[in-house]
């Protein structure tokens, strides 16, 4: 089982959010990238788009799978990680760092997210 870093929040659809004041950085978890395998493409929103919690905001593709990205928070996209266009593998190699997806200006308090310990317990049940 992958170690979920402490200090950030996790969703049941395997996205993470790192809160920084009224902003949040969003990515996919190590568990998600391991299940997908080698990621070949990341489809992201554009700066200015509005994200809603529990709603789709893009997708990630590997050779044999595709998965929707589900936003863990409400907010407006400030910045997207354009480096992923040419190097989607960063989501595999460094999901919590260089593989970040979008930076969002929060429009509400995030709800229903887990801390690292709760998320790890959740993943343990998912992995059966």
């Amino acid at each position: 089982m992958s170690n979920a870093p402490a200090g950030i929040l996790y969703s049941k659809s395997h996205e993470w959010a790192r809160l920084e004041g009224d902003q949040a950085v969003i990515g996919i978890t190590a568990f998600a990238q391991e299940s997908l395998g080698d990621i070949t493409y990341v489809e992201l929103p554009q700066a200015g788009d509005t994200l809603a919690a529990d709603k789709e905001f893009g997708s990630v593709e590997s050779v044999k799978a595709a998965s929707d990205l589900i936003s863990p928070v409400d907010g407006e996209v400030l910045e997207v990680n354009t480096a992923l266009e040419d190097a989607p593998e960063k989501c595999n190699s460094d999901p919590y760092g260089e593989g970040w997806l979008v930076r969002v200006k929060l429009s509400g308090k995030p709800e229903g997210l887990m801390d690292a310990a709760a998320y790890e317990a959740f993943c343990a049940t998912e992995a059966h």
């Binding site: 070949t40 493409y41 593709e61 590997s62 050779v63 044999k64 799978a65 595709a66 929707d68």
Partner: peptide, 12 residues
């Protein structure tokens, strides 16, 4: 680029 296709994405 098979991830676009019906056998993976089904309705999407």
């Amino acid at each position: 680029l098979q991830a676009r296709e019906q056998h993976i994405r089904r309705a999407k």
